[in-house]
Design a protein around this nucleic acid. Structure first.
Length: 308
RNA sequence: GGUGCCAUAGCUCAGUUGGUAGAGCAACGGACUGAAAAUCCGUGUGUCCCUAGUUCGAUUCUUGGUGGCACCA
């Protein structure tokens, strides 16, 4: 009989995805405790300090119960992108899997999850100066002019890109100008095989239940001091990290655009819409197995024997 | 109890001189590669309160109900 020496392929990343307010955090702590696993967050906003309430970071008790990574480790003024996340998370997993068979990854940012599980293409990071220049040109010349330039520099991507989406057109143009090569030449569309097993759990429920939970959670955030938190972050309101549901509406309220009650209403509505977009993203991933957050036992069984 | 007004999408309402209807908001569906809680695209989802008439045809006109609001008692 051969000795069963542990190899890296025994390592398992338990990915927990789902819309905002679905109960991912509580579930992740329960799963992590059961499998004695640390938790890494795949949430693009919970990485920042000072956003504990509005981004629904895990509670102090939860943070004390299980080691967490990528929670409140960055200043809101720092740039932190999906590529930074991929690099750092992979390096971290290397270390964590040296001592743990299981690691839990939980969060609502679909792009971060895909970056971690499948890898991003080798693209250059954004150049802030070029980006500024392009966004100035966007307001001066209009989107159509920039799309025309993209047509010249990368006719292939121009055919498939959403030409009405400034973010898409600008990013492609940015890469073309920065590298002198068409954006499409970097897009392989291939997935990187990771040196660990991946099991994806999706958390969801009836829309009416989800929306009721979102409403309740927004009310809870208000009780926990969202207004004061947003007040403290107001000077940073123009930063990418603060383009976030919960804060934007509060900032607009501080600017006198509407009353506090209206702000709370809008936070609820925009959270619902965000949840909808998350579900659209996750629904196209056939490797996700969906559960109600209360089905902890079934989820554990599925992790132990995913084939069943 | 009497009189008047109202009843159309989830909500607020418009409209059809009789040919089964449309705005705003909400909602729903989708896209997504270094800003992703971002950014963008698409979609009316309807016993026109019920009933019986008139009519080729009624959400629209008439009868009788039901519910709501207002005023008078």
């Amino acid at each position: 009989m051969k000795p069963t020496t542990p190899t890296i392929s025994d390592s398992t990343l338990i990915v927990i995805a789902g819309p905002t307010g679905s109960g991912k955090t509580d579930l992740s702590v329960a799963i992590a405790r059961h499998f004695h696993a640390p938790i890494i967050s795949t949430d693009s906003r919970q990485v920042y300090r000072g956003m504990a309430v509005g981004s629904a970071q895990p509670s102090d008790e939860q943070l004390a119960a299980v080691p967490h990574y990528f929670i409140a480790g960055r200043d809101v003024t720092e740039r932190f992108t999906c590529a930074d996340f991929e690099r750092e998370a992979l390096a971290l997993l290397d270390r964590l899997f040296a001592e743990n068979k299981y690691v839990v990854a939980v969060g609502g940012s679909g792009l971060y999850i895909d970056a971690l599980c499948d890898g991003l293409d080798e693209l250059p990071d954004a150049d802030p100066e070029l980006r500024k220049e392009l966004s100035d040109r966007l307001s001066a010349e209009g989107l159509e002019a920039l799309a025309e330039e993209l047509k010249r520099l990368d006719p292939i991507y121009y055919e498939t890109v959403d030409r009405q989406n400034p973010a898409r057109v600008l990013r492609a143009l940015e890469v073309c100008l920065q590298t002198g090569k068409p954006f499409s030449s970097f897009r392989t569309g291939s997935k990187t095989k990771r040196p660990f097993r991946i099991i994806k759990i999706g958390v969801t429920m009836e829309r009416t239940e989800l929306y009721a939970r979102i409403d309740r959670r927004v009310d809870a955030m208000m009780e926990q001091g969202l207004e004061a938190e947003a007040r403290a972050l107001y000077p940073f309101r123009a930063l990418p990290s603060l383009q976030t549901v919960g804060y934007r509406e509060m900032f607009a309220h501080f600017d006198g655009e509407y009353g506090l009650g209206r702000a709370v209403e809008l936070i609820k509505r925009n959270s619902r819409r965000y949840a909808k977009r998350q579900l659209t993203w996750f629904n196209r991933d056939p490797s996700i197995r969906w559960f109600h957050p209360s089905e902890t036992d079934a989820i554990i069984r599925h992790i132990v024997s995913p084939g069943v």
